[in-house]
Design a protein around this nucleic acid. Structure first.
Lengths: 244, 244
DNA sequence: TCAGTTATTGTATTTGTTACACTAATTATA
DNA sequence: TATAATTAGTGTAACAAATACAATAACTGA
């Protein structure tokens, strides 16, 4: 792998997680200090991204970036949109940030957005020189560059996919209860569902398979555990669910 | 507008049309001749695309490319995917083609795919130095570069959109009959619908509005004409049609 | 005027969606 | 050890949407 990167092409990854009944996103703190390092000029949040290398395709760049932040391989990773406005790196804080790096970032940069899904508990954050943390998607604002916009678009796609695909199940742990699954859908879509009707729907999804196991240690009736069979899903998905 | 183009970033446009009950795509002939211009080395088909300029955003580049080919402005134009494999310009004919231009195309190029929809009769093709023609999407094969793959993905997105959006109506002329509309949906989706049930569906789409006008000059019962009101559609679309 | 062609319309059946409330199993606490 | 607290789990009736299906109407060309 060459480490010559392409100056005007980057990949940004929106890493979604789910935890405590909330949809989360993994973000990095961006803090600009005065040259004597004593004071903070500003501090905000950013997605994780980087330029692509000259001999690297887009999917590999996204996988590299996600692995670099989470230590994890083989996550679901999906391209959702490419951002190329001329003013995408032109907000006041971003200009200050650029100045710190001289003209390295003075080129026009187009970035390809990917999103990744995982249960947020799977990530062991171990970053030396960066502050990385899960944020509830509802509490995030004032992000670096055009990252608010990228997150917005990623969320839109996630909601869309959730309704037409089983991809949302990637956000749940390996073993989950139907109540957890329902709360996931409710959190992401911002609605609420009737418990019985939700379960009737799930019962038709043959890729959500009951395990021979129940919760334990909970102070109430323990729930049946289920798993997501990617295998059954791939084999039985219908190709084109027409709406008309 | 600067005319310095970015060497490793391009936009490719898939221009869809509809005509004679078939989904069409507007393609350009790519013919490589021997240096004495007497013989043809090969000839194949290509989408229309070009590098972006340094001070041009992606949507503008796509609009420029579509206008250049069709002479038309203000068409529906939608980004659908970005292609960045390392081998996307590496098929045998493509290498021969590159050699003709020296090393201008020797960089690695990532391309952003857009698609555009219009009734194919709207285009007056008037290209001096290029052969441009509508092809039925079913008859197209052996395209330049990775354009088969780009077309495939565009088609997938078009089918997807057709089912969740009114965008397909952009392929019909300003005044159309319900039979034309049905044949459009059948051609794009590759299915057939019951006429009465199809019309019941359309009756619920308040953005498909009947005109005070009928067909004339047809050798059979003349059909009622309808129009697509983009305005009503925008005002009445529901934000999130949940599936669960 | 009649043959050919496409347009237009309704109903019964099946399928899916919604609304709704009680009992069961576990832990914590009195 | 009984009881309170908490979440899990389940069925049915009403309503809405999707499907299957065939006869009559309006025009042109021969």
């Amino acid at each position: 792998m060459s480490h010559k990167w392409v100056p005007n092409l980057s990949v940004d990854c929106v890493i979604f997680g789910f935890d405590a009944d909330q949809l989360k996103v993994l973000l990095v703190e961006r803090t600009l200090r005065t040259t004597d390092k004593k004071n903070i000029v500003f501090s905000d949040l950013s997605l994780t991204g980087y330029h692509i290398y000259e001999d690297e395709d887009l999917d590999s760049a996204a996988a590299r970036i996600v692995k670099d932040l989470t230590g994890l391989d083989k996550l679901v990773l999906e391209q959702f949109y490419t951002f190329g406005s001329l003013d995408r790196l032109e907000h006041p804080n971003d200009k200050l940030w650029h100045e710190q790096f001289g003209d390295v970032f003075s080129h026009r940069v187009v970035t390809v957005g990917y999103f990744s899904l995982l249960p947020s508990t799977k990530v062991k954050i171990a970053q030396k020189d960066r502050v990385v943390r899960w944020y509830s998607v509802n509490e995030v604002q004032n992000m670096a560059f055009d990252h608010n916009q990228i997150l917005e678009k990623a969320l839109f796609h996630l909601r869309y996919k959730l309704q037409h695909d089983a991809i949302g199940l990637e956000l749940l742990p390996d073993k989950f209860t139907l109540s957890q699954m329902q709360r996931l859908y409710e959190a992401v879509l911002g609605t609420s569902f009737d418990k019985r009707n939700f379960r009737k729907k799930v019962a038709q999804m043959n890729f959500v398979v009951p395990l021979k196991e129940k919760q334990h240690g909970v102070p109430h009736k323990p729930a049946q555990l289920y798993m997501f069979s990617r295998d059954i899903f791939m084999r039985t998905r219908k190709e084109r669910p027409y709406f008309i």
